[in-house]
Write a protein that binds this DNA or RNA. Structure first.
Length: 578
RNA sequence: GGGCCUGUAGCUCAAUUGGUUAGAGCAGAGCGCUCAUAACGCUUUGGUUGGGGGUUCGAGUCCCUCCGGGCCUACCA
């Protein structure tokens, strides 16, 4: 039994996430957490909403709410959706928690004392009308290069030229349209992560088994151009962790807060503390997961994230922890994902293009989405969601291969023997062969799950289901029943036990369906089938069961074409979606 | 512009890291079965591995080049 700490990248607070966000971090993290628990490991699975930053303030303003109120509401909505998708977080925290304020300020102070924080004077664009500094991205104007009128302060989307806000012709605020912009001097704190470059480089080099996607992004940032750059970790905003606090080793940072990418990863730790608080545990309960001097030495820490988050998790956050000089637990494995596209393009919030978490659950139960998304996870390259692919995969894998198997086994038994596991007969070479095949698939399933190879794990799982259909076809209890009912009884007894094993091993992918199968079989023994032969003998002759309702209704052509049209986008139907 | 990833059957993806005849699922074709959600099983048709060149006894895999797709490029997160 191992101790495994799992975190999913924090979803940003400003709206409901789409399926691409879901499959990029939270869903595979949940798969792994559920698998580890099923194998008997001690797991803490942590996620939280990332609530600070300009977009949150703007979204709140748009909704006409105070930002704190807005975030509270959106956190509740995201919590509901997480439950809806059966994401089994031990704690779903908030980066605006008191725990995170305290820990962020603590780590900042440590970094300051270690000489790793530097004050830098900068000039930034200020909008008197909006009453705030504007990040480059929130300044629009005419591109000096191509004349595009809606170029942003950081880059022109039309000609892709990199810009400074001061390059723009007729600059205006993207927030209000105000044109009375001025450049003001402001002071900020910078994390001197460049001084840790060699340490980080060696650390990355020592991670030989990380996905290429993870290490190549880290290497790029470490070595590109002049190498790893220091990074501003404060912003001129109201909403966030105050950068000036009691015990701060600097002065004059009033009115500034820490940049979200400084405080957001720290929330992984803080949320674990929130978890302890919520469960009436003491500090030692969370410290034994995070402090190598307090018991975290044997913890395996695995992070899940989309590729856009990799730089912060491979460089800035480790720099924060290492630079503090305190014995914090560093990540052992970073599983990163590419993007999921929607039917030939990107998911688009503003265009209402694609499927969002709330909409998905209105159409179909969570297991449909979990299965498709995980079995098509964008591990090696960007992947694409199409309704046609979704329909055929779900109908074939879930309805035909698994659902129908459960149906044919339970219904056959009911009609020939009644709703009781039948007795009599014995197993023979055919059953032995089935067990050998199953053992092979189960072993590969376990290997792949432990390596967090999501798609391949799904393939192995499916192969186990297929083996059940093959066995049934060959054994043909509907034939043997006519000549040798005892043999048919033995065959169907094995088949009933088989679907019980399927429920157990499939649970990380399709938890609700697994629960339904186990309920129908009147079993609550979820122990992992380490001994397959024993596991296939758990339901004894005479054990009662019921025939479950259809596990997976098929997606019809009508449904598919309707959904295709509804989610094609073109009109802004995003509502409060971000 | 620079960097990284990627291109394999009609579609979605594999290929033990350079090693026999490039494999699965779906779709297509044929046969079988009738317990089951018109489900299941068996057999089978599809590939000059984007093009060209090179290294090697041997290349999908390594090198060069051209073509296509994607991502990142540091103040959106």
């Amino acid at each position: 039994m191992a101790r495994i700490l799992i975190t999913s990248a924090l979803p940003y607070i400003n709206g409901i996430k789409h399926l691409g966000n879901l499959v990029g971090s939270q869903l595979p993290a949940d798969l792994y957490a559920r698998y580890c628990r099923a194998r008997g490991h001690e797991v803490v699975f942590i996620c939280a909403t990332d609530e600070h930053g300009t977009p949150a303030e703007l979204a709140a303003a748009k909704a006409g709410q105070p930002v704190a109120e807005y975030c509270k509401q959106m956190h509740a909505i995201q919590t509901d959706l997480a439950h809806g998708f059966r994401l089994s977080f031990d704690h779903y925290g908030r980066s605006s928690s008191a725990r995170n304020y305290a820990l962020t300020q603590h780590l900042a102070a440590r970094l300051g004392q270690a000489g790793l924080i530097e004050e830098v004077s900068e000039e930034q664009v200020y909008s008197p009308t909006d009453g705030r500094f504007l990040p480059d991205r929130y300044i629009e104007g005419t591109c000096p290069n191509c004349g595009y009128e809606r170029a942003r302060g950081d880059q022109c989307e039309n000609c892709t030229k990199q810009l400074d806000p001061t390059d723009l012709i007729n600059p205006r605020s993207a927030v209000s349209g105000a044109t009375d912009l001025e450049v003001r001097a402001t002071r900020h704190l910078f994390l001197r992560q460049s001084t840790l470059r060699d340490t980080l480089d060696r650390w990355i080099d020592s991670q030989t088994s990380w996905p290429v996607l993870t290490t190549s992004i880290a290497k790029k940032w470490l070595h590109d151009g002049d190498g790893l750059q220091d990074r501003g970790i404060t912003r001129d905003l109201d909403w966030g962790v105050p950068a000036q606090f009691d015990g701060a080793p600097w002065q004059g940072m009033e009115g500034k807060v820490f940049y979200v990418w400084f405080d957001a990863p720290i929330e992984y730790i803080a949320a674990t503390a929130e978890w302890a608080d919520a469960n009436g545990l003491d500090d030692a309960a969370w410290q034994r997961w995070w402090r190598t001097d307090m018991g975290a030495g044997d913890v395996r820490y695995v992070q899940f994230m989309g590729k856009d988050n990799v730089p912060f998790h491979t460089l800035s956050f480790p720099a924060t922890l290492i630079g503090s000089g305190e014995p914090w637990k560093l990540v052992d494995y970073i599983k990163s994902f590419n993007y999921l596209n929607y039917d030939g393009g990107q998911f688009s919030t503003s265009l209402g293009r694609g499927v969002f978490m709330d909409q998905a659950l209105e159409l179909l139960p969570a297991d449909y989405w979990r299965w498709w998304l995980l079995s098509h996870a964008p591990e090696n390259s960007d992947a694409e969601f199409t309704w046609e692919n979704f329909q055929t995969s779900v109908n074939k894998d879930l309805a035909d291969v698994l659902g129908n198997l459960v149906s044919r086994v339970t219904k056959f038994c009911r009609s020939k023997f009644g709703e009781t596991v039948p007795e009599g007969g014995q197993t023979g070479p055919r059953e032995l062969e089935l067990m050998n095949v199953l053992a092979g698939h189960l072993a590969s399933y376990e290997t792949r799950m432990e390596a967090i190879e999501v798609r391949k794990s799904a393939q192995s799982l499916r192969a186990m289901w297929v083996a059940g259909n093959e066995y049934l076809q060959e054994a043909a209890p509907w034939s043997t029943f006519k000549t040798d009912p005892d043999q048919a009884a033995a065959q169907i007894r094995l088949a009933l036990n088989l679907i019980r094993v399927y429920a157990i091993v499939a649970r990380p992918f399709i938890p609700d369906t697994s629960v339904r199968i186990m309920a129908a079989l009147a079993s609550d023994d979820w122990s992992w089938p380490d001994d397959l032969a024993a596991a296939l003998d758990i339901l004894p002759a005479g054990h009662g069961f019921t025939v479950p309702d259809v596990l997976f209704a098929k997606i019809t052509e009508d449904q598919r074409t309707e959904w295709e049209a509804r989610f094609a986008g073109g009109t802004d139907q995003s509502g409060q979606r971000g």
